[in-house]
Amino acid sequence: MKPNLILHVVAKFLIPLIILFALYVQFHGDFGPGGGFQAGVIFSAALILYSLVFGLDAAEQIIPPQWLRILAALGVVIYAGVGVITLLLGGNYLDYSLLGSSQIAGQHLGILLVELGVGITVAAVMLIIFFAFAGRGRT
């Protein structure tokens, strides 16, 4: 692919900001707008921008497709695992109040973990779908 200087410079400047914003939306979702779904798609948009500018092979070196498959499953496991932990602690499934010393602390930790699981799965799934579509044209 023929390198385009303007695209490269602008993308290198923008991608860290997009990833930072995704992390902000992920971990600040309790207080501001956003959450796991939004953070996941914004994070994957940053990596898709990278692979559009620098090529698919360079992007696959950052995150190999095998990792993406593991990560997509890992997010669901984190989410469902929080529910199983609350079951083992003697509560209902996904009853976060038992996770912490008080109800508020437990709810806070539970929501944070669950949103993390959502974010990991959504980001990995978006990238899997993008790599699957974009990889078809490769000879």
Binding site: D30, A73, G83, Y96, H108, I111, V114, T121
Partner: peptide, 27 residues
């Protein structure tokens, strides 16, 4: 829940089962 953003509280805590289903759909 101690979470000021009600949308997040409903999505992750009150409707936790729904969101688990949604994540499974995405997966």
């Amino acid at each position: 829940t101690g979470v000021p953003n009600i949308v997040t509280a409903v999505l992750a805590s009150y409707r936790g089962f729904d969101t688990l289903g949604e994540v499974t759909v995405v997966f």
